[in-house]
């Protein structure tokens, strides 16, 4: 059984004002098939955690470790991490002008699998996944994220999740900017991916509403760069009623 382990992770980011410590000792263990919700107020370091797992060069790991089945993830390049089975659904997916969704998906699938997918089955898979996500087939010929609405970009992220079949997915505020219909569609996509591949999910969110559609096994409350409290789904209900205020007393968010 695959496991993603994060131990005592400290991460800095360089800003114009100098070095800032964002993550201050994060411990998390996610097994395949588990859904972990990371919840916390703005500025608590949730997105930093997501980008650090994916290997964004902006973030510097000062100490601690991230391992995937014992392999040192921090030693891997961004693309090696993806090929090892990690996936990041981004909060703000970037536009890639001139690269069609079709071309991009096939290139990524080929990179992940180490060989080009069989044409017929692949075309069918793409069509089915797009239909499941209520994406117009015309999307396939559009350039990646170019001119997409916020909701379309998020669906495109989940489309990639379904097709690339990673072991672990980090969903960075995938729910932000979605209306209720889009939120349901996207959540269905995540649930489908989990059913089909036994995906492990790190679901990063500010709000509890996505948890109505994706049921977490564990909830971690993130405050000031570390996990302040952990529990089951009932913790999310409590957060919905009480908000984050009780964690913020004395916790200075730098």
């Amino acid at each position: 059984m695959s496991v993603l382990e994060i131990k005592d992770l400290h991460v800095n980011v360089e800003t114009e004002q100098g070095t800032r410590e964002i993550l201050r000792g994060v411990d998390l263990t996610i097994r395949k098939g588990e859904i972990h919700a990371i919840m916390g107020p703005n500025g608590s370091g949730k997105s930093t955690l997501a980008y650090t797992i994916a290997g964004h060069p902006k973030y510097t790991v000062v100490s601690g470790s991230i391992t995937l089945d014992g392999e040192d993830v921090l030693e891997m390049s961004v693309d090696e991490r993806a090929r090892a089975g990690l996936f990041l659904a981004m909060q703000y997916p970037v536009e890639i002008p001139g690269v069609t969704v079709t071309n991009f998906l096939r290139t990524a699938k080929t990179a992940i699998d180490g060989q080009a997918p069989a044409v017929r089955g692949w075309v069918k898979d793409v069509r089915e996944s797009m239909a499941n996500l209520r994406m117009d087939p015309a999307f396939a010929e559009r350039n990646v994220n170019e001119g997409f609405s916020g909701g379309e970009k998020k669906r495109n992220e989940i489309l990639q999740l379904e097709l690339l079949k990673p072991d672990f997915a980090v969903l960075d505020e995938t729910d932000s900017g979605l209306d209720v219909d889009a939120l349901k569609i996207v959540s269905e996509g995540v649930n489908r991916a989990k059913e089909q591949t036994g995906l492990g999910v790190l679901l990063i969110t500010h709000y509890t509403r996505i948890l109505r559609y994706i049921t977490p096994d564990y909830v971690h409350v993130f405050v000031a760069g570390r996990v302040a409290e952990e529990g089951g789904p009932e913790l999310a209900d409590r957060l919905e009623e009480e908000g984050y205020d009780r964690y913020l007393d004395g916790a200075v968010v730098s």
């Binding site: 994916a54 290997g55 964004h56 060069p57 390049s77 961004v78 693309d79 991490r81 993806a82 090929r83 996936f87 990041l88 981004m90 997916p93 970037v94 890639i96 991009f104 290139t107 990524a108 990179a111 992940i112 990639q160 690339l164």
Partner: peptide
Amino acid sequence: FYLQARGIR
């Protein structure tokens, strides 16, 4: 970064 995060070298 986006492309590499999808496994592309």
